[in-house]
Design a protein around this nucleic acid. Structure first.
Lengths: 235, 235
DNA sequence: TAATCCATTACCCGATTGTCTAATATTATT
DNA sequence: AATAATATTAGACAATCGGGTAATGGATTA
């Protein structure tokens, strides 16, 4: 969470490293077009290309790019499945789903399977570069053609008893950085012993952290903490 | 670089009419800040401002702006309600929800009630202008801080069904209905004892179910099961 | 009919968890 | 320099968890 803020500022203020991108797309012509369009920008660097998911995953594992441009209509393993595997390998990676379809199920499936953005292939090349920059810092960007159907797919909430007061912004105690580390391991299913080993501290320390995490998150056990963390995107 | 978007828009679009914007925000200082930040752009024109929802709705009805910047923490009628009414009046209007909270329920509520974008108040002013342009053409834009939780809220598609390849669905053993019930309680953080009480069975039974759930889901403990269930939308 | 799967219950046992109190070192913040 | 917050370690304790084995009845299917 705190990382998000930092990343935003880094991306906007400092022009350190270019954003590394991998393209996975079966049509050679489209591939070339994408590469040219993106490489025309100083701050974006297409580091590799693949024409199918298998090859793409290999390249992604090797290069660990910031952003993946993933075509959904791939032969063999489809894009959705590839995205899931991709996210399993590198949870922090950002994926832009690229396709020419605007089928509702495909859009939702892509976004709920790890994509941070959904672009139709007739997007303006310059705009695509902007999307790459946005997505790299964590923004969710959805093409106008499919934005409405995506928003409609969100669960409706009864706003009756909706009071936007201090319920959480003030009542919520922020986790320390160390506690966030512990939380990540906790979410990945590690035991206190394993967490301790990972952080090179004693089990007592790990337990202490877990304990204060539970209290700060207002939950009773680590399962609730993990679920809440996942649902709220804390990890 | 930051001018990139401007150039695209200017170059491609006829610089005909600027995007008209109405700001609804109770803090005067924030209001001024927003107006200045947006009016600094030639292609954006803040046509009116309101400090509460009632006044805002009147102004919106009169001016019919392209985009509304709506604070969610308004006194009296809250922002969500205002957005719904706003959409009823002018269905095509685009709304950017603006708030300092990052509570999951509020984000989802806003987006499912008509907002096309969700920005936290610490957004870069220049970035906000970009968002206004994006939203004006129908893009859905969501702040990095809340993007993940939004995507997590999307209904998960049962990928097994429409994935042509067996690569991921092969070794997977389906859960029985009873096990699914147990899984739901497990995800909600209940202990075996509580699950047993809920399903009116003995603790032994609950444990047996949990045990086979763990095996079928190929995980080592209930935390991993819960996280996996949430991530894959099994619950 | 026989075979299979499922839900159910039971017992044992070692490992793990969450809470408590308590102390010390390190690091900001003032 | 003094204060506060955080990270670290420890011991102890009740409760829970996960794995193992095993038995029973019901339902479906081959």
């Amino acid at each position: 969470m705190k990382g998000g803020v930092n990343m935003v500022q880094n991306a906007e203020e400092i022009q350190s490293k270019p954003i590394s991108v991998i393209i996975v797309e079966d049509f050679k012509l489209t591939r070339v077009g994408l590469r040219c369009a993106l490489n025309a920008n100083d701050d974006i660097n297409v580091v590799a290309e693949a024409e199918d998911a298998i090859e793409g995953l290999k390249l992604i594992e090797k290069n660990k790019p910031d952003v993946v441009l993933m075509d959904l209509g791939l032969p063999g393993m489809n894009g959705i499945e590839a995205m899931i595997k991709c996210k399993e390998m590198i949870p922090d990676i950002k994926i832009i789903a690229l396709t020419s379809h605007d089928r509702s199920e495909e859009v939702i499936a892509a976004l709920s399977s790890g994509a941070s953005a959904y672009c139709l292939k007739d997007i303006d090349p310059q705009k695509l570069a902007d999307v790459v920059r946005d997505v790299a810092i964590g923004v969710c960007w959805i093409d106008p053609m499919v934005a409405q159907m995506t928003l409609n797919a969100l669960p409706k909430i009864d706003n009756i008893g909706f009071l936007p007061n201090k319920s959480s912004s003030e009542g919520r105690v922020p986790l320390t950085e160390r506690e966030f580390e512990v939380l990540k391991h906790l979410v990945s299913g590690k035991s206190n012993t394993e967490i301790a080993k990972e952080l090179i501290v004693s089990v007592h320390t790990a337990k202490a952290h877990v304990c204060s995490i539970l209290q700060k998150m207002c939950v009773n056990d680590r399962v609730q903490a993990a679920v809440k963390a996942v649902k709220e995107g804390m990890v």
